[in-house]
Structures are given as C-alpha cells and as structure tokens.
C-alpha cells in the first residue's frame, strides 16, 4: 500500500463508526426524540458482536448480534420515554451508564482474547484505482452499508411520504397527532432505527477497528456522534462531511506528531466538540436559515390528550 492509500484507509476506518452512529441518531432526533444513550447502545453492540463472532466464529452473525444489542437498549429507552413518558435527557444518560456497566459484565470473560476480523470485500477493477481504491472499494460490508444508509436516510427523509410524516412528528407532534398520525409509534420506529445504527457502529469497533474487547472501548465516540448530528444541522449529507472531517483531523494530527511537527494535540483532540459549539452558536444566532432544520419538538415528550 502506498502512503496516501494507507492514510485514506486509516481516515475511513476512524470515521465510519462516527458516521454510523450519527446517521441513526439523526433520524431519532428528526422524529423529535433526543436519545443521549448512543454511547450505551454502541458499547452493547460492540460486546454482543464480539462475543457472538468469537463463539460462533462467524463475524456476520456477530453483526446481527450487535444490531440486536443496540436495538434492545433502544427498546428500553423507548419503553421509558415513549411508554412511561420519562424525561428523555435523564433516560438517555442512564442508558449510557447502563450500557457501559452491563457490557462490562457480559464481556468479562472475553477480555484478553483476540477476536474474529470482518473480512474485506474487494470490488474487482475499482479497488485498483490509485489512492482511493483501497479506501473505498476494498472495504468490509459495514462500510458499504454505512454509505448505503446515508443515501437511504437522505432519500427517506426528504423524498418519501413516510419520511415527511417522521419529520412532521418531530416538528410539531400536536399537529401530526391531529392529522391522525400515531406520534409515539413513529418515534418508536425511529428510536429503534437509532439503536440498530448504534449497534452496527459498535460492531464496527470490535470487529473491524480494533479486534478486541475491553470495557469502555467506545471511549466517548457515542458523544462525538451526538455532537456530529448538531454539527451537521440535522442534514444527512453533512454528517458525512462532519464524520470524515473529524476522522481526518484525528489521523492527520497523529501523522503530524510522528513527522515531528509541533501540534497542540490536546487542542486537536477537543476539536470535534469545539466545532459543535461553533455550529450551535451559528444555529442559535441565525433565526431563519440555520434553524430551519432543527426539529422543533426535539426532546419533548408527547402525551396525546383524549
């Protein structure tokens, strides 16, 4: 592999888990639900995927288990916030803590054991393209799924009727309810989708990124994904830009350090969060353009009055 190829592959690997989790959370937030439990769902996905692939020897079964792990956590969140109308912020935080602790318990016996790596699927001819070939056309199934998901979500939200309903639920749940849509059912599906994506993201961590299980291995990526959604101002395409920007900054600062440049590495580590704060400032300053995409009912519970 040439230097540039290797660099791009590293960037793509670092960005994919962020993108996966962010695209899921974007759909959740578009429906008006704020699930702060991304980190918890992700780590559950990671441990389920790792344990299953190690026991069965099949990484694809691992991915399924990762999806299930994330989805079960999302269901719990949905039960509490949609069913019992619990506070979404508190429930999300609790979900993160629960996921970190519970995954540690499940994964106790898998610490210190190398895992099963997800194979790459080489697309002939295209993967021979210089520089970008390896990074884009010689990847594993999760990478291709991620890209497909971004296309899919973008189409779904803005071109499909169901996507319109989902967005209207997030914009004004009372109107959506008055029009006869089942607000909480729509939100349940959205939350579940978010769980599936976080589960996939966790699977990517333990099956591709680093082939091992250690407690707390997500190391805050769930929070970066949450920040990314805001950074992308709830637009799917911008999450791609954001995820690759964050990934590129991370990898490039390592290269800069290795090459002996003096970079303030602490500052660069904080960059995703700084970028998000800047994005938030823009959103709150600009009343029309930037705010158009912010779901108005974000974080508000819906109780239908009868």
């Amino acid at each position: 592999m040439e230097f540039a190829d290797a660099l791009l592959v590293s960037i793509v690997t670092a960005s994919t888990p962020l993108l996966l989790a962010a695209i899921g959370e974007l759909v959740v937030e578009r429906s008006g639900v704020l699930n702060l439990g991304v980190e918890g769902m992700m780590i559950m996905g990671a441990v389920c995927a790792f344990a299953t692939s190690l026991t069965t020897g099949n990484p694809y079964l691992g991915i399924l288990a990762g999806i299930a792990g994330g989805a079960v956590m999302a269901l719990l969140f949905a039960f509490l916030t949609l069913g019992l109308v619990a506070n979404q912020y508190a429930t999300g935080l609790a979900l993160s803590l629960l996921g970190l602790g519970f995954s540690g318990m499940i994964g106790e016996h898998y610490v210190g054991t190398p895992g099963v790596k997800l194979p790459t699927l080489d697309i002939p001819v295209l993967s021979d393209i210089p520089v970008i070939g390896d990074a884009i056309f010689n990847q594993d199934i999760l990478f291709y799924m991620t890209i497909a998901l971004v296309f899919g979500v973008s189409w779904f939200l803005f071109k499909s009727r169901t996507g319109l309903i989902l967005r209207s639920v997030g914009e004004n749940h009372n109107s959506a309810h008055a029009l006869g849509y089942n607000v909480n059912r729509v939100r349940l599906y959205a939350v579940l989708f978010g769980g599936v994506c976080s589960g996939l993201s966790g699977s990517y961590l333990s099956l591709v990124y680093t082939n091992l299980w250690i407690e707390n291995m997500t190391a805050g990526r769930g929070w970066i994904a949450l920040a990314l959604v805001v950074f992308a101002s709830w637009l799917p395409w911008r999450t791609i830009a954001g995820a690759y920007l964050f990934g590129a900054v991370l990898i490039l600062q390592f290269h800069a350090q290795g090459a002996g440049w003096e970079v303030p590495s602490q500052l660069l580590s904080a960059l995703p969060y700084l970028a998000t704060i800047v994005a938030l400032v823009f959103i709150s300053r600009n009343r029309t353009v930037a705010r158009v995409n912010t779901p108005s009912c974000l974080g508000q519970s819906f109780v239908p009055d009868r």
Partner: peptide, 22 residues
Amino acid sequence: IWINSWFDPGKEADAAKALIDQ
C-alpha cells in the same frame, strides 16, 4: 505520538498505523 488518553483502543490503533506508514 501522544494520544492524550490512557484508554482508547481505536486511537491507539490509529497512532500505530500512522507510525508504520511513516
């Protein structure tokens, strides 16, 4: 390469790749 964390397998792997690439 400093990764500013004691505990982040992903970053450790990324730093390792960068060093090998260099």
